[in-house]
């Protein structure tokens, strides 16, 4: 239900992402394995006082329709992430090595599918 609509109101106060105030439940990132044989995939985040509750809440928030067979909860503050500014230097080495991609090699048609 509900939808955003245009109406004037003031801005909200900003807080640092991932560092809760004393009275706030910490933020957890939730990863779910959709089916057997697949890896866990990030689906979103939620607040919970501890890991046990994070998993219970994740069950209610992210798997109301059989979306998963396994849940991981990781406290957001413990996740290290690359920053977008590093994009170039971080990925360049692999971009150089085009031979990692199968299309780098010309296989004669006579050989057939490879």
């Amino acid at each position: 239900m509900s939808s955003p609509e245009s109406s004037p109101y003031n801005d909200t106060e900003a807080a640092e992402h991932g560092s809760p105030r004393k009275t706030e439940w910490p933020l957890w990132e939730i990863f779910i394995r959709g089916q057997h044989g697949l890896s866990h995939r990030h689906v979103g985040s939620l607040h919970a006082p501890d890991a046990e509750m994070a998993i219970k809440n994740a069950r209610d928030v992210y798997t109301r329709r059989n979306e998963g067979v396994s849940i991981w909860a990781v406290e957001a503050a413990h996740i290290a992430a690359s920053s977008p500014e590093e994009k170039g230097s971080l990925y360049e080495p692999s971009n150089d090595k085009v031979y990692r991609h199968p299309t780098f090699f010309d296989i004669p048609d006579e050989v057939g599918a490879m």
Partner: peptide
């Protein structure tokens, strides 16, 4: 219950912009 879930997905999205859910 779905609507509660929708609220939570959206608060999470807003939080990535630097505002806390409690705020």
């Amino acid at each position: 219950q779905d609507e509660a879930g929708h609220g939570l997905y959206l608060y999470c999205a807003a939080e990535t912009l630097g505002v806390s859910r409690d705020q």
